[in-house]
């Protein structure tokens, strides 16, 4: 069971237990992490599950698809080199300890 941390814009870390195979977005929604809206429920349609992946972890995530890339251009907060959609990050034990920073807004 991987455990991951969301860091709120004010610097507050929130560590949660994720289930193998679920997405970071799903874990966040289950634990009511406020900064993840996930309006489309993980269907790569809304860009309201935007996160900034902590340095060091980015290279360990699977590459993003074309859908995700295009959607990130429309994200409400600034797009950065480490921007990802958390619904497209599938969790497994190899991502235990993953740190995801929340943007200041999703809309």
């Amino acid at each position: 069971m991987p455990s991951i941390t969301f860091v709120h814009p004010d610097g507050r870390p929130q560590r949660i237990d994720a289930r193998d195979g679920e997405s970071a977005m799903q874990a966040a929604t289950r634990h009511d992490v406020g900064g993840i809206l996930a309006e489309c429920g993980g269907n790569a349609m809304c860009a309201t599950c935007h996160v900034y992946v902590d340095e060091g972890w980015l290279a360990r995530l699977p590459a993003m698809g074309g859908d995700e890339d295009a959607l990130l251009d429309g994200a409400a907060a600034e797009r950065r080199a480490n921007s990802r959609l958390s619904c497209q990050i599938k969790l497994a034990t190899d991502l235990d300890g993953l740190v995801l920073n929340l943007p200041d807004r999703q809309l």
Partner: peptide, 20 residues
């Protein structure tokens, strides 16, 4: 309510393309 996950716009590959 945390509404994420409802199926009012469907779900999966046909999920409403006009939802935004």
């Amino acid at each position: 309510r945390r509404t994420s996950g409802h199926v009012g716009f469907g779900s999966g590959i046909h999920m409403c393309v006009g939802q935004l």
